[in-house]
Design a protein around this nucleic acid. Structure first.
Length: 406
RNA sequence: GGGAGUGUGCCCGAGCGGACAAAGGGAACAGACUGUAAAUCUGUCGGCAUUAGCCUACGGAGGUUCGAAUCCUCCCGCUCCCA
């Protein structure tokens, strides 16, 4: 890497920090970039992932996209699978002690991570390093842990509002949860992170990394904080545990439908964080005077689907959506329901198709006028039908199944 | 170690001997209305049963009672105060 001119440095800083909510600190980033270029040494950009559930959602992508920019400038992403950290459970979430994952599970999850991340990041070995924090954390002696803990005070810990709030509300806080920021920060020390990106809920943890690195005689990592994406419900942050997310491996039609179901007020946020459109383009789209909201949202959905599945899939999902929901046609693809030949009570047909967990629920659905077979509504809970292969069972607005007689 | 509380359905939370499958809210599902929006309105929301009804369930195990989520005993978990 050749030395950078002042202008190039400014451009890079600008590019890399676009969309960041906070930056600690800009001048450090500038100097670190210049130093990397001078020494011909790529920066190490840290990215931590919780291995307990393997879905990466579009909220993560806000940061991933920035990391990709680092990669494209010649730097290296370091993915840390927090297999050891996962034993504690993130204090920012609900208070639950998580199960210890087996080595195989972690391997499997790690593999899917890399596969999923490849949709955004450059997965080539010189650009992406994958580590587990059990590598170093499981080797630590108790004495080392004590020394680590001595670098922070209880008052400092209690600054985290997740702790403060829980304490005030009488929600239990395990002492071990205080170790969480240490583990995360110590990861930065062990991998010699130059930069760490995180969501705004990770600010504290990321800054602890700076403290620990400094105490260990390293240059503290530059911390870039990105806004969190709001979940589909329009209220809570997008997260795996809340189930209000769009996974980057979701099927195109699912993904499209999920985007369409968000409240209008959320479109701006999604355009900004979920797409690469410019501010001006977004402004035109979210202004109801210029663009009909429904059209704007469809465009948003198309863009998001295209990002992960390609433009053709984006267009196809749009067309399918119109077909099924605007025109009321049946979808092109739907799950098959294998059934035995002969007459069958309708309630059993519904449970076979897994549209209801119990026969009682199936009965209720029928009573609520939600069930139809080949477009014919059936509202008699005692109905018995003799379906043929190819007939279509529909439950509610969006659940369809094609009958296959065995 | 001493004391005071508390544990309810997916979540929050009321109930404190019968009228309790358990108020209310949230989530979810269905219907209406729509732009499959959101908001709103209506309904459903443990299981089996066509109804009657039966079974399972209020931290766990026993007990008192015709009858217990509600009272008693022990155990377990959690919170707070004092040490």
């Amino acid at each position: 890497m050749p030395e950078l001119t002042e202008q190039q440095l400014t451009d890079q800083v600008d590019l890399l920090t676009r969309g960041a909510e906070a930056l600690y600190t800009e001048s450090e980033l500038r100097h670190r970039l210049a130093w990397a270029a001078r020494e011909g040494r790529p920066l190490r950009v840290k990215l931590g992932m919780d291995p307990t559930s393997p879905d990466i959602h579009v909220g993560h992508v806000v940061q991933l996209r920035q990391i990709r920019k680092f990669q494209d400038l010649g730097h290296k992403a370091v993915l840390i699978i927090g297999d050891y950290t996962a034993r504690i459970g993130d204090p920012s979430g609900v208070n639950k002690t998580r199960p210890v994952l087996s080595g195989e599970q972690i391997d499997a999850n790690a593999a899917t991570y890399v596969a999923q991340l490849s949709r955004v990041l450059d997965p080539s070995p010189e650009k992406l390093e994958v580590r587990r924090n059990s590598e170093w954390l499981s080797q630590m002696s108790f004495e080392q842990v004590i020394r680590l803990c001595s670098q922070m005070t209880v008052a400092r810990m209690m600054e985290r509002d997740t702790f403060e709030l829980r304490f005030k509300d009488g929600v239990p806080i395990g002492v071990h949860e205080f170790l969480y920021p240490f583990m995360q920060g110590y990861d930065s020390v062990c991998i010699h992170a130059d930069v760490e990106l995180g969501g705004s809920d990770q600010t504290f943890n990321n800054l602890v990394g700076r403290t620990l690195q400094e105490n260990a005689g390293q240059k503290p990592q530059i911390v870039m904080i990105f806004p969190l994406m709001v979940g589909l419900d329009g209220v809570q942050k997008m997260s795996k545990s809340k189930g209000n997310y769009i996974g980057i491996t979701d099927e195109p039609n699912d993904m499209f439908g999920k985007v369409m179901s968000i409240p209008d007020a959320l479109m701006g946020n999604y355009f900004e964080l979920g797409t690469e459109l410019s501010r001006a383009e977004i402004a035109a789209l979210v202004d109801p005077a210029q663009t009909h909201p429904r059209k704007a949202k469809a465009e948003l959905a198309r863009l998001i689907v295209s990002q992960y599945h390609g433009p053709a899939s984006g267009a196809a999902a749009l067309a399918e959506f119109d077909r099924v929901f605007s025109q009321g046609n049946v979808p092109t693809d739907m799950p098959e329901i294998p059934i035995p030949a002969g007459a069958i009570p309708l309630v059993d047909l519904i449970t076979l198709g897994q549209f209801a967990d119990s026969r009682g629920e199936a009965r209720r659905l029928i009573q609520q006028n939600a069930v139809s077979l080949d477009d014919v509504k059936i509202s008699d809970i005692a109905a018995t039908v003799t379906p043929a292969t190819g007939q279509i069972l529909r439950v509610g607005k969006r659940r369809f199944g094609k009958i296959v007689v065995q």
